[in-house]
Write a protein that binds this DNA or RNA. Structure first.
Lengths: 225, 225
DNA sequence: CGGGAGATTGACTGATCTCAACCCGGGTGG
DNA sequence: CCACCCGGGTTGAGATCAGTCAATCTCCCG
């Protein structure tokens, strides 16, 4: 139950003073979620921030034809649900657990009060939002202009940077081909074909969902980042 | 020189108290820009917010191959440059004047000070950032999943909603076909072909850059919004 | 062992891009 | 006054990337 340490080190709640920490922890506890579970869905009313202590959550929008577009993967230290909490609108994304997770919930009232009374916290939140905005803009331009191959290469690189690889250079995140496709913004079959092309070209190695990054420089080059 | 009224009514600076208003207006004046002028470019260091008093500014990223992707069109009351100001990073977009403009500059220091001392202002800013984030996410999903035709229809509708039409239902914004293409995320020729298809189908009328919206409901339907 | 989800492969289709030619109107300089 | 140029705007033809459809395969699980 010592999240305090984690929250104060790894999240936007870092540097909060004792009284503010108490505010957050008042009568509050973390909750566990299993792979596949939905935290909240598009159109839901969001009541506060969910801070990820453990696991991986995918944040996505379901398009007109039922296909999902993954907006981002959230990992420990990240917050989900903050946009809707701040604006008071209904959720514009769905969030599902990719890897068994543990989330800490912080009521919207508490957050808003913090924003109004703690300038540093407000600034932290603002920076977080602005960073997401930068990512979104980059992603937008990529999807609009790059080929699927370039985007897939880029996604692989970003996965490595966000979730690391083990000593074998194997990505430490397990995604279905469909999830990969929904990140890249393409069809599952296209991802499959391109992955095996990358394999044939010696850029990666595959065994099921394990993806080993063999030639990172070449992938970077391919991605035109 | 009475921007005060405008700022207090139409912008994130609304509801600021006298002392904060004074802070913003200290030794400050607006500046005029002509069509085609660049306010700042990708990679520039941004020193503060630019609040638009008059005109239209396009905010875009230039992709690897030199093609521009328009992220948004900013109009009176909007702010440009806030992302970089807040995070302290270099600009990740370029901003150019589409319609002769008048901008009011507010130094980053002043803004940051306001964020830290004025909770309501911080909240306003945060809401603004979150709204942009919602737009960005929607746009992302659209570009990833919709056809060019759907996206063009949607852009036309959004242009009408943002910039209105006159009594004749003519869009009150003048864009080159290339700018339109850069909003939709497609080639100029594709926009031209689709516009004339829309014209043949009786959805719009064209004369040069004037676009008259004839059948809005049908456009909405076409766009799958 | 049957069922189901995810992964793969092949064949086909088609939306969209690229390239290239041409048009049009306005402005400029000789 | 006219030829020329230049920035858009249009149109056509051809090439192709990438999506869809459908069949098959491979695990994994109960």
């Amino acid at each position: 139950m010592n999240y305090i340490d984690f929250l104060q080190k790894e999240t936007i709640f870092k540097h909060l003073e004792r009284k503010d920490i108490d505010l957050i922890f008042f009568d509050n506890d973390s909750k566990k979620y299993k792979r596949g579970q939905t935290i909240y869905g598009e159109g839901d009313k969001i009541k506060g921030f969910y801070c990820i202590l453990k696991g991986i959550i995918k944040v996505f929008k379901t398009g007109f034809d039922g296909k999902d577009q993954i907006i981002r993967l959230a990992k420990p230290g990240d917050i989900i649900g903050f946009r809707s909490t701040i604006t008071g609108e209904l959720a514009c994304t769905t969030t599902k657990v990719l890897e068994d997770s543990e989330l800490f919930f912080i009521p919207g009232d508490v957050v808003k009060k913090l924003v109004k009374t703690n300038g540093d916290f407000a600034m932290n939140l603002l920076e977080m939002a602005c960073n997401e905005l930068r990512e979104a803009n980059n992603f937008l331009t990529d999807i609009a202009q790059k080929t699927v191959k370039e985007r897939l290469a880029e996604v692989l690189i970003q996965l490595k940077r966000s979730f690391n690889t083990d000593k074998e250079n194997v990505l430490q995140i397990s995604l279905t081909r469909e999830d990969l496709a929904n990140m890249v913004g393409t069809a599952t079959e296209s991802v499959i074909r391109l992955l095996s092309e990358f394999k044939n070209d010696g850029l990666i190695e595959l065994s099921g969902r394990r993806i080993k990054i063999v030639d990172e420089p070449m992938l970077v080059k391919l991605s035109n980042m």
